[in-house]
């Protein structure tokens, strides 16, 4: 119940952002919501099942291109976005069947290679996707402000939906089974957990919303090219956000996304040339000093407070 209330409060608070009437803030909000979707998505396979996936960029890019190609052929926007999610899911089911039997580093590399292959496939099919030249998408006939609001609420809605699914999964049998797999896959199998099926489900969950996010992103920026939507950072940043917020938690990914994007924005504006190094520094500090994320830090602090209160 508490999780649902927090989600509701967050969604309501975020919905008030357009009242500020600041286009820059709206853009930032859309990006945060987008990364919240990606981080939340990664958390299914990476946080819950413990499989270090780098396929997020592949799902995002596939979604973006699926939707872009459909839109170019005159499909309605909603349909194209939905199809993007479906396509990413099918792709995950297919690829998952092939690579989810790998563990540890091997899985990480395979999932990374999936993204690279996708990027190259797009690069080498210029007839369908424009290849390295990229693709233009139809620009919606809306005022700038209305369009900014539309995409903000689309991303926000998707983030809320992803989080809702995360809450349901984490409390249910699927989430429980995934946590078993993460801690000891062989033992989980022997206890009757269909590990292969569960991992595939988690991989598909991590694909569907990433794919839709890619589709919305493509419509939002109305121009996509392979290095942009298959960017390796699209696979790495969500992971860092989850580590930042807290692995395997419901709200960790959102907190991580908001913090990292805000921080990046500040750094980006003041230190353009060492932007990547600053991100690297955050990652290094995070891994060395706070591997369990902020939520765990807050939780242990609360715990200490409570104990002191009792004493």
């Amino acid at each position: 119940m508490r999780d649902w209330l927090i989600l509701l409060a967050l969604a309501l608070a975020a919905s008030a952002l357009p009242l500020a009437g600041d286009n820059y803030l709206m853009r930032l909000g859309t990006i945060v919501a987008m990364y919240a979707v990606l981080a939340q998505s990664w958390n299914f396979i990476g946080g819950l099942a413990g499989y270090p996936s780098f396929a997020t960029a592949a799902f995002f890019g596939l979604g973006a291109y699926t939707s872009a190609v459909l839109l170019a052929h005159g499909a309605p926007t909603g349909f194209a976005w939905g199809a993007a999610g479906l396509m990413a899911t099918l792709f995950a089911a297919l690829i998952g069947g092939a690579i989810l039997h790998l563990r540890g580093h091997y899985f990480a590399i395979a999932s990374l290679a999936v993204g690279e292959v996708m990027r190259e496939i797009v690069n080498t099919t210029p007839d369908l996707t424009g290849g390295g030249m990229g693709m233009n998408l139809p620009v919606p006939k809306l005022s700038i402000a209305a369009s900014a609001q539309l995409f903000y609420f689309a991303m926000l809605g998707l983030a809320a939906l992803t989080t809702a699914v995360a809450i349901i999964v984490q409390r249910g049998k699927l989430g429980f089974g995934l946590r078993c797999i993460q801690q000891n896959e062989d033992a989980a199998n022997i206890l009757g957990v269909n590990a292969y099926g569960y991992k595939t489900a988690a991989f598909c969950l991590s694909a569907v919303f990433s794919g839709i996010a890619g589709a919305i992103y493509a419509s939002w920026v109305h121009y996509i090219e392979p290095p942009d939507v298959f960017d390796i950072l699209l696979a790495v940043k969500p992971l860092v956000m989850v580590l930042l917020g807290g692995l395997g938690t419901v709200f960790g990914p959102i907190i991580g996304a908001a913090l990292l994007i805000t921080f990046e924005e500040v750094v980006w504006r003041s230190f353009l040339t060492i932007h990547a190094a600053m991100l690297g520094l955050i990652i290094v500090l995070l891994v060395l000093f706070m591997p369990n994320g902020l939520l765990a830090l807050v939780r242990s602090w609360l715990e200490r407070r409570r104990k002191e209160g009792k004493a």
Binding site: V236, L239, V240, L243, T273, I274, H275, A276, A277, L279, G280, L281, I282, I283, V284, L286, V287, L288
Partner: peptide
């Protein structure tokens, strides 16, 4: 993740 972060720094 750690070596990724370090690489960002070195490469930058």
């Amino acid at each position: 993740t750690l070596t990724f972060g370090l690489d960002l720094i070195l490469n930058n």
